[in-house]
Design a binder for these strands. Structure first.
Length: 830
DNA sequence: GGTGTTC
DNA sequence: GAACACCAACGCGAC
DNA sequence: GTCGCG
């Protein structure tokens, strides 16, 4: 580039300058001697970042760019303006000792000279710099733009942006920081460590959980980038965690299948690896040696899991090191070596170097499902990305079974399955039918399962006319291959391949194949954020992000599933929540993770009402959830349980009910619980108090006594304490008034503490944050003998109950009673 | 999940 | 802009 | 005082 023209606006500027110090690349043009230098230092401090420095007025103007520069004009890289550095700093490469400011290693990642476009000092002052870079790595026109900066802020935030020109390249095709990671200075000879751990691996503790990297379905072979191709296995994704002698086999959703696959676990242990995670797929090979998904399911059914093969394709952790940042090719090289002498049932998943088209054609001819392409230079990243792609022979995905049609002629069982997928709003949309791929055996078996799930009404939203047949609860998931979608969005040439039980029905949506984003003509894609938003369904107008996130691994319930439950339950539940302070239990990482109990909120739950701060002085306001929006807003905030006060906001100091929480101690049989609830009811009856029953959704039962608000909290609490102590005194073998597990072995603890001011009990229709996801459901007393436990109804089964039962608490609102007479009978001395 | 802090 | 740390009750009985 | 519990 011939840059220095006579009209160079820098001419006067240059005359004033002292150019003694500028370091220049070996190939610098003569003019460059007088030019302005730039340097980019890669700084592995607490966080890796790139220090971008431009020489101006005798110092290096400096920005810290966390992600480093990109040649992609759509990528705006944040550049935090930091203090000027002396020109001499441009040559610095080395280690800043620990505890010093900026401790870590620094390398000169790029250097050269820069050519301002326009007056550089004015541009710097005004926060709009344009310039051309002439470095060893970076070329072309760039811009540094200052963002609107809060005057309070100590540091200015700028953006480093590549201008559109010849040098520009899309990030998906070329990431300069990944392609050229090293110093441009003479390399110091490295100590050639003789170790099987690749460079780039970091020493790290073995994580307890690891989410697998997932592939994106695409329709065409990518045209750029370095890819390797493996066969797509028609099986179950399994990650193996190895620590010492302990091996755990974990499914894609985080379920532990070690117990289901004991032979495989033993084989993995034989590898004698330590502190490692393997990633692969288990399959059963058929007579022709190709993977067979149907056989895999039978293998579980028959406990013939000995036939299972484990094809391992990745090694995110090994030997106490985190290899995820190591390029795929190197991880696989090491993995292949480690699997050299692996037991028969563990296989390295080979990759093929031929053209993707040829490999795909061959895979399809062999009736395989498709192939997986992976970028060889990429790290291991949990979740879906464009670095791994699926190319399918026929399209294939899971569908929710919503019904079936009658068989004709000599066909047994049923004619076809009616299929559906969830739309953006989480509603089930008809997706066509599948009638091929069944034999008489699975027709009959499937028919039995379907009959057990029969429902009256269609689970479909806006069912089209042709969707006719018998409806079932949308619970079963079918794996179906098909040639494509018709214009009416139903399947063409669908073939059934089996039921899947590793994916919950609520997570089934239409999988749209997408183009791999590596064409340089690609429009600016905002990959993560955009697709996440598109995937976020709106339930009753509330966006539910991460709808597929599993809340309860034991049932596969997803966040979307819980949102759907609460939407359906809202009509019944809101009267129980309205006008009462509410506390919630939130589970940001699902019920397996840490649970938070929250009673206050500073707008923490969208749609929730903040109550009079005087209700709980010295705290942020209490909350009320009185609308569908607030209910679902709470779900979006990962709320699982809703607990309410025993008083309403209109009369907060006078409880309008007392609740007896019957909690079984260790070893109490369910019939004992039923009997105990009946005893409590009879005793309250004797005191002249009508009571109502509900399941707790957990282990126990709740007996609720409605009151006309008259007495204060202390009175209510004293009364319930007296009831509890009376029961414990009269039937000491049955009841305990004291908490603490040792007090209640074999007994039922009646928790009177539920009745103090500010105390809460789980609300009717609330789900519980426990495995199985029980729901607290109001019952009639004559239903008590039919109940099977405190979690008789769950999120999965409660919806049916909601619509079918008349309100078992219809008399609740009509009940007018106070504690006055009962207290006289029970506590005559007070 | 939202907020604030950091580079 | 992005990564990350931090936050989200309370009262009782037992020790 | 702190811990475990609901």
């Amino acid at each position: 580039m011939n840059s220095m023209k006579a009209s160079d606006p820098l001419a006067t500027y240059k005359q004033k300058r002292d150019f003694g110090i500028t370091p220049e690349p070996a190939d610098a043009q003569p003019e460059a001697r007088a030019a302005l230098s730039f340097v980019i230092q890669k700084h592995a401090a607490r966080r890796l970042h790139y220090d971008f420095r431009l020489e101006l007025d005798g110092t290096l103007k400096s920005w810290a760019v966390p992600k480093g520069p990109s040649f992609d004009p759509t990528q705006k890289r944040m550049a935090v303006h930091v203090e000027d550095h002396p020109l001499s700093y441009a040559n610095f490469e080395g280690v800043i000792p620990p505890k010093q400011y900026g401790a870590g290693t620094v390398i000169v990642w790029d250097r050269g000279w820069w050519e301002p476009i326009g007056d550089p000092r004015k541009a710097y002052r005004e926060g709009h710099m344009k310039f051309r870079l002439h470095g060893e790595k970076l070329h072309g026109a760039w811009a540094l733009v200052r963002m609107r900066t809060d005057p309070e802020e100590r540091q200015e935030h700028w953006l480093l942006i590549k201008e559109r020109d010849q040098a520009a390249r899309p990030e998906a095709e070329y990431s300069v920081v990944e392609a050229l990671p090293d110093s441009v200075l003479k390399q110091l000879p490295k100590a050639a460590a003789k170790s099987d751990i690749p460079t780039g691996a970091k020493k790290a503790a073995l994580p307890d959980k690891l989410a697998p990297q997932l592939a994106t379905l695409v329709e065409h072979v990518p045209v750029s980038g370095q890819w390797s191709y493996e066969l797509k296995f028609d099986g179950y994704r399994i990650l193996a965690r190895i620590e010492g002698k302990e091996v755990r086999l974990i499914t894609r959703n985080g379920n532990d299948w070690t117990a289901k696959l004991p032979e495989l676990a033993a084989a993995v242990a034989e590898l004698k690896l330590d502190a490692a995670w393997l990633d692969g797929e288990i399959v059963v090979l058929d007579a022709e040696g190709k993977p067979d998904f149907g056989a895999l399911q039978n293998a579980f059914g028959d406990e013939r899991t000995a036939a299972v093969r484990y094809f391992v394709f990745d090694l995110p952790f090994h030997g106490g090191h985190d290899l995820r940042q190591v390029p795929l090719a190197e991880r696989r090289k090491l993995l292949e070596a480690l699997l050299q002498k692996a037991p028969e049932r563990i296989r390295f998943s080979a990759d093929f170097e031929a053209s993707a088209k040829d490999i795909l054609q061959n895979a399809c001819r062999l009736k395989l499902e498709g192939i997986i392409g992976k970028r060889v230079d990429r790290p291991y990243v949990s979740g879906r990305s464009n670095d791994w792609i699926k190319l399918k022979c026929t399209q294939r995905q899971e569908f929710v079974i919503v019904g079936y049609s009658d068989p004709q002629g000599s066909r047994v069982g049923f004619g076809a399955l009616l299929l559906a997928v969830h739309d953006e709003a989480g509603r089930l949309r008809y997706a066509g039918r599948v009638g091929a791929g069944f034999d008489d055996t699975n027709l009959a078996a499937l028919k039995q399962k379907l009959a057990a799930l029969a429902v009256e009404r269609t689970p479909l939203f806006e069912p089209p006319k042709e969707a006719r047949g018998h409806w079932v609860k949308p619970q079963l998931v079918a794996e179906v291959s098909f040639a494509g979608w018709t214009r009416e969005a139903v399947l063409r040439h669908a073939v059934f391949h089996g039921l899947r039980d590793d994916k919950p029905a609520a997570a089934i949506i239409r999988e749209a194949p997408s183009e791999p984003s590596n064409e340089k003509t690609n429009p600016p894609v905002k990959p993560a954020a955009k697709s996440r938003q598109n995937a976020a369904p709106a339930i009753a107008g509330t966006r539910i992000t991460h709808p597929e996130r599993i809340i309860d691994a034991s049932t596969g319930l997803t966040k979307l599933g819980l949102a759907n439950y609460y939407q359906a339950a809202a009509k019944y539940m809101l009267p129980h929540l309205a006008r009462r302070p509410v506390a919630v239990i939130r589970a940001p990482d699902g019920i397996g993770g840490e649970l938070f109990f929250q009673k206050h909120g500073e707008a923490a739950i969208p749609g929730a009402k903040q109550l009079d701060p005087a209700f709980d002085p010295g705290h942020p306001p209490l909350l009320e959830i009185a609308s569908v929006e607030a209910l679902l807003g709470a779900v979006q905030m990962n709320v699982i349980e809703f607990h309410t006060w025993n008083a309403t906001t209109s009369n907060i100091e006078k409880p309008d009910r007392v609740t007896f929480d019957l909690d079984p101690g260790e070893g109490v049989q369910w019939p004992t619980m039923q009997e105990a609830a009946e005893l409590v009811r009879a005793f309250l009856d004797e005191l002249g108090l009508k009571s109502f029953l509900k399941t707790s959704g957990g282990k126990g039962l709740h007996v609720v006594v409605p009151l006309t608000p008259r007495d204060d909290w202390d009175t209510a609490k004293d009364f319930s304490k007296a009831v509890t102590e009376h029961l414990a005194a009269v039937l000491p073998g049955r009841f305990s008034a004291k908490s603490g597990p040792r007090n209640r072995v074999g007994k039922i603890f009646v928790d009177y503490l539920r009745n103090g001011r500010g105390a809460t009990t789980v609300a009717a229709f609330s789900a519980r944050a426990r495995p199985g996801m029980g729901v607290s459901i109001p019952c009639a007393w004559d239903e008590l003998p039919t109940l099977t436990g405190g979690a008789h109804w769950t999120v999965a089964t409660a919806e049916e109950r909601l619509a079918s039962a008349d309100d078992p608490w219809a008399d609740y609102a009509k009940t007018k009673q106070t504690l006055t007479a009962a207290r006289k009978k029970l506590m005559p001395l007070k």
